[in-house]
């Protein structure tokens, strides 16, 4: 049973680690499906983590923190939109720029406001999203296999975790079953056709990047006021890029995005668990292998060795209505 206990604890932490990836990858899904590449996911996550930690600390209310995180993240999205939709600038350059602005600004403002080297003070208990114990945990605990799984993996997460998993079918429904979703996908494949149908391409794309900002706000908030209790310098630590990798790994589709995020979260959890442990027969497995694996896998996928990852056709190309 010891092996099973370890597995349950790794699975539990895999779920927790995959949530910020899931929100962020879904954010990227909306943006990229509309033809706007978003390298700035990382920056949006970081900025919203900072904003939510500040507000949650000052008001002691986690929901206000979430609101602030979403607002700041959408503000970043709008700058990205202004540069890449209105001014037809290079979307990648804009994303890179916003990542730097977020990385620098969070520390500069954090140091100026709180004087703790860029950290925010500890968010009080009621200012955080607390774990929710689902009903029936105690009754189920005695059931072999399913009991511990239910208690440690499915139950005991905070509300944002459940929202994240709800977002997956919701995103699928929006993208594939609504008129808005059809137009959003069309604008990423053939904006000219959408324009001919009398629909504004810029306005469609703006709505897509706002949605991306909205979802990234959840990711940042999750990092700062659910997973931990304060903002820490550079706490997104490349998760935005892993989410981007997950998005590509899932070939820009919502349900596979969830599985890719869970896989990358699982790798992260295994890496944490394996630190300093010796595997019989192999010896100590370097942690770096697990850290590099998401990126290696994505590259192998991009090389076309695991199916074909075809990005939205008009992705990264600014739309010019007339010459």
């Amino acid at each position: 049973m010891e092996f099973f206990d370890i597995l349950v604890s790794i699975l539990g932490s895999a779920v927790r680690l995959s949530i910020p990836l899931l929100f962020t990858a879904l954010a990227g899904l909306f943006s990229e499906r509309a033809g706007i590449f978003d390298i700035g996911l990382e920056g949006k996550m970081l900025a919203s983590a900072f904003a939510s930690a500040c507000v949650a600390y000052m008001t002691g209310n986690a929901w206000l923190g979430l609101l602030a995180g979403i607002a700041v993240s959408i503000a970043f999205s709008l700058i990205h939109g202004f540069a890449s939709i209105t001014n037809r600038g290079n979307q990648i350059v804009s994303g890179v720029a916003l990542n730097f602005v977020a990385a620098g600004l969070t520390i500069v403002l954090g140091q100026a406001w709180f004087g703790q080297g860029g950290r925010t003070p500890q968010v009080p208990g009621e200012g955080r999203f607390a774990p929710i114990i689902l009903p029936g945990v105690d009754a189920m605990r005695e059931v072999p296999f399913i009991g511990p799984l239910y208690a440690n993996v499915i139950s005991g997460n905070n509300i944002l975790t459940y929202i994240a998993f709800l977002m997956v079918p919701l995103s699928w429904w929006v993208l594939y079953r609504t008129r808005f979703g059809l137009r959003l996908r069309a604008v990423g494949e053939n904006p000219g056709a959408v324009d001919t149908a009398g629909i504004s391409v810029p306005w469609m794309r703006y709505r897509a990047v706002i949605l991306a900002g909205f979802l990234c706000g959840f990711a940042g908030t999750y990092l700062a006021v659910a997973q931990s209790a304060a903002f820490i310098n550079n706490m997104s630590a490349g998760k935005g890029y892993i989410a981007l990798a997950a998005l590509i790994f899932a070939k820009w589709r919502p349900v596979p995005v969830m599985f890719a995020c869970l896989l990358f979260g699982f790798l992260d959890a295994v890496a944490n668990f394996m630190q300093g442990k010796v595997v019989p027969g192999i010896g100590e497995v370097p942690v770096q292998i697990f850290q590099a694996l998401p990126y290696v896998l994505t590259c192998i996928l991009l090389a076309g060795f695991i199916g074909v990852a075809r990005p939205p056709k008009a992705g990264g190309v600014p739309y010019t209505k007339e010459r």
Binding site: I79, A83, F100, G104, L105, G118
Partner: peptide
């Protein structure tokens, strides 16, 4: 001391934003 070294990163980001992404503005 109120201005940390990371202010450079902000300036760098803003330069990339204005000189790169918003070059046609």
């Amino acid at each position: 001391p109120n201005i940390t070294r990371d202010m450079i990163v902000v300036i760098q980001g803003l330069v990339i934003l204005f000189a790169g992404a918003l070059e046609y503005m």
